[in-house]
């Protein structure tokens, strides 16, 4: 059941608490039904202040991708992922060499610890055969 955004605390804290439980939280506007990310207290689409937290199913598609290179270590991926619920976030695609991450790749949410904080990352969805 959707909770009222004001009742559950500061948007950034609620997002973090979802991640700490291994979940990807986002908000949905009760006015225009837009999926909202990053979390706020006002809908950037319609201006409504009435919206609720939901848990994402974690399925998404790579919208854009880059490999960031370093002089002294291996490159790392940075990607924008479009979630099935209709919001986009920056993240990292793991479990695949950085230059094999492609726009359009199907990915799934996972949690990693990043500098002592939980962070949302994504891993490629294994291609399975029919049936």
């Amino acid at each position: 059941m959707a909770e009222d955004v004001a009742a559950v605390g500061a948007p950034a804290e609620v997002y973090r608490s979802y991640l700490k439980k291994g979940k990807l939280g986002f908000q949905r506007c009760r006015g225009c039904r837009s999926a909202i990310f990053y979390p706020r207290v006002l809908c950037p689409v319609c201006g409504s202040a009435s919206f609720a937290w939901e848990e994402s199913g974690g399925g998404g598609t790579v919208y854009a991708t880059t490999a960031v290179y370093h002089r002294d270590r291996e490159p790392h991926n940075v990607a924008l992922v479009d979630l099935e619920e209709g919001f986009r976030m920056m993240s990292r695609i793991e479990g695949v060499p950085v230059e094999e991450v492609e726009v359009g790749m199907e990915v799934a949410f996972a949690v990693r610890e990043e500098d002592g904080e939980p962070a949302a990352v994504f891993v490629p969805v294994a291609k399975t055969g029919e049936g």
Partner: peptide, 19 residues
């Protein structure tokens, strides 16, 4: 909401657009 993923600013943002 972006810093944890360590994009190199500003180039990584433009790289994403290019991709």
């Amino acid at each position: 909401y972006e810093a944890p993923y360590k994009p190199r600013y500003p180039v990584s943002a433009y790289a994403l657009a290019a991709s």
